[in-house]
């Protein structure tokens, strides 16, 4: 029982990060119909900026804020400087450009910072608090849950309650009509990229201290898990990304705890097939695919 509780909590706290990262993917997918394969590399770049700032000033929180700002700016930059010029008529073109960005960003980070692991500090203790003899959450886990809760609620609020959110949804759903109605569609797209990249940077700041450390490839594996999570949940559904993230986190934890860590990729494939063969658009697909 102890082990089950332990694995559950471990899985949930990783799952929360996957959820945030999957959310970033969903944001861009909804805004631009692009699966942003460069999300991981962009988030790592933001985390490196935070590392530099924290190392210079000694303040974790300043670095934390700078990471999110850097993420926002990088997202806007990628949209304005690169993605805007890509022919989107074939959905593969932006994917290939994103893969090119991955190579470029990782190479530049490697040149500037070298390929050594850099320590990534956690702002709170990662030692679990014990309640009634049972090791439960660590303060850091609580911080992760709280931050991601804020992000999820904040995004939901932006999209459901604010004028900007409404415009972004309109621009993504019906760009031509929105343009006629006076919505700055291009600007909304850039905003979407910025938001997604900012959320991605935040997720990186949360997950890197629990991994090997800061490295140009630090988010590669997280990206794969988060992409899986987004697909399981349904790429059009933010709640789906959150649920998908938690499910994938739990699955990885249980499988490596009870069966062996080498079986986790197989478990992920089985999960994907089990979900998608029943619901080809993910768990939270809004409407079932039309059949003739």
């Amino acid at each position: 029982m102890d082990r089950f509780v332990f694995l559950t909590i471990d899985g949930l706290s990783r799952g929360a990060v996957y959820a945030a990262f999957a959310l970033a993917l969903v944001l861009i997918w909804r805004a631009a119909r692009v699966v942003n394969f460069a999300q991981g590399a962009m988030a790592v770049a933001a985390a490196y900026v935070a590392y530099t700032v924290s190392a210079q000033t000694g303040s974790y929180w300043l670095g934390f804020v700078v990471a999110i700002v850097a993420g926002l700016l990088l997202g806007a930059l990628v949209d304005r400087a690169v993605m805007r010029y890509v022919d989107h008529t074939s959905p593969l073109n932006p994917v290939i450009v994103a893969l090119g960005l991955v190579l470029l960003i990782q190479a530049v980070l490697g040149m500037v910072y070298g390929s050594e692991f850099r320590p990534a500090e956690a702002p709170f203790s990662r030692s679990a608090l014990t309640v009634g003899g049972l090791a439960v959450l660590s303060p850091y886990d609580l911080f992760v849950f709280a931050t991601i809760g804020v992000v999820v609620v904040g995004l939901a609020w932006i999209f459901a309650r604010t004028a900007v959110g409404l415009r972004m949804r309109a621009a993504a759903f019906a760009p031509e009509v929105s343009r006629l109605l006076g919505v700055n569609v291009g600007g909304m797209l850039t905003l979407g990229w910025a938001l997604a990249s900012g959320v991605g940077a935040l997720a990186a700041m949360l997950v890197i201290p629990t991994e090997l450390g800061l490295h140009p490839h630090a988010m590669d594996l997280v990206f794969v898990s988060a992409f899986t999570a987004a697909v399981v949940g349904g790429l059009d559904s933010p709640p789906g990304a959150v649920v998908g993230g938690l499910v994938v986190g739990l699955l990885l934890s249980y499988v490596s705890g009870y069966a062996g860590s080498d079986l986790t990729p197989l478990a992920v494939l089985v999960l994907l097939l089990a979900v998608l063969l029943v619901r080809p658009g993910g768990l939270f697909a809004p409407v079932a695919a039309r059949r003739v």
């Binding site: 102890d2 471990d10 594996l221 934890s253 490596s256």
Partner: peptide, 19 residues
Amino acid sequence: QTYVTSNTNVAPQIGAFKA
């Protein structure tokens, strides 16, 4: 216990040692 480099969570293995 074993680990694979493609899975950076060793908490399950270390948890087993502790248990």
